[in-house]
């Protein structure tokens, strides 16, 4: 499946966007480590959907707009993004930080959203459950904690670093801190408004997630009782990379 690769401007932010496939629009919202390449799960989804893979403002090749100061700014940006591309009935698939963005969008306005698929989403706190301290861990340890299968982490670590990839890693890390340092990876005011989400929600979680432990699902099901919860065994924080078939099957189901 061929993905186009270009830029669009939304809210004054030159935004890197890859797009491929056809069908209903599916907006993939990446997590803290960005979306540097088209991955197999995106290709699989493109057989069914018109898949849009932007890099968030402040990440990858996209601009770093001055107005981006918190997660709400990112949510308003993506609501404008849906409008700018005139996307209707979009499926939002958000991983980790991207799942948090999808929630923040959907409590504000679901008029262009058909459903949400949240993959190990950040966004809420849960009593007694602590996310990994991704800012204090050395980058290699963060990567090792992303996957249940150590071979996947070793593959990722073996990818050669270039000056450009280092710049992007530091840029992504900066924006993640800006949006999620404090309160750490959540918005304490979000739970009050989750009832406004009036579209179907699926939550997918790796049973062995060492970044955001699977115990978060308990709090999500309390806050969003209608959400479908899918826990994938033998899988870490990124089911879309670690178990792409099971992941795509749940998205398409």
């Amino acid at each position: 499946m061929k993905f186009t690769d270009g830029f669009i401007e939304v809210d004054g932010c030159r935004t890197h966007l890859r797009r491929g496939g056809s069908g209903q629009p599916l907006l993939y919202l990446h997590g803290a480590s960005g979306a540097p390449a088209i991955m197999p799960f995106m290709e699989q989804l493109a057989a069914r959907f018109d898949v849009l893979v932007p890099e968030h403002p402040g990440y990858g090749l996209s601009d770093e707009p001055e107005w981006l100061e918190n997660i709400h700014d990112a949510a308003y940006f993506y609501l404008d993004f849906l409008k700018r591309l005139n996307l209707q009935k979009a499926v939002l698939v958000g991983s980790s930080m991207g799942g948090w963005m999808a929630l923040e969008m959907a409590v504000r306005d679901t008029s262009r959203i058909k459903s949400l698929v949240l993959v190990g989403p950040a966004g809420i706190s849960a009593p007694g459950v602590q996310p990994a301290d991704i800012f204090l861990m050395p980058p290699e340890e963060v990567i090792r904690s992303l996957f249940d299968d150590p071979r996947l982490a070793e593959q990722r670590l073996a990818e050669p670093a270039t000056p450009e990839s280092l710049d992007i890693a530091l840029k992504n890390r900066h924006t993640t801190a800006r949006l999620a340092w404090e309160p750490r990876l959540h918005d304490p005011f979000l739970p009050k408004w989750l009832h406004r989400i009036d579209v179907p929600v699926k939550i997918i979680w790796g049973a062995e997630d060492r970044i955001l432990p699977v115990a978060f699902t308990k709090e999500f099901s309390r806050l969003m009782p209608k959400a479908e919860i899918h826990i994938i065994a033998g899988c870490g924080h990124l089911p879309q990379l670690e178990k792409p078939d099971a992941f795509c099957e749940i998205v398409c189901r």
């Binding site: 204090l136 801190a177 404090e182």
Partner: peptide, 8 residues
């Protein structure tokens, strides 16, 4: 890190 104040 200790105070949680956002360094950015």
């Amino acid at each position: 890190h200790t105070f949680g104040v956002n360094p950015t």
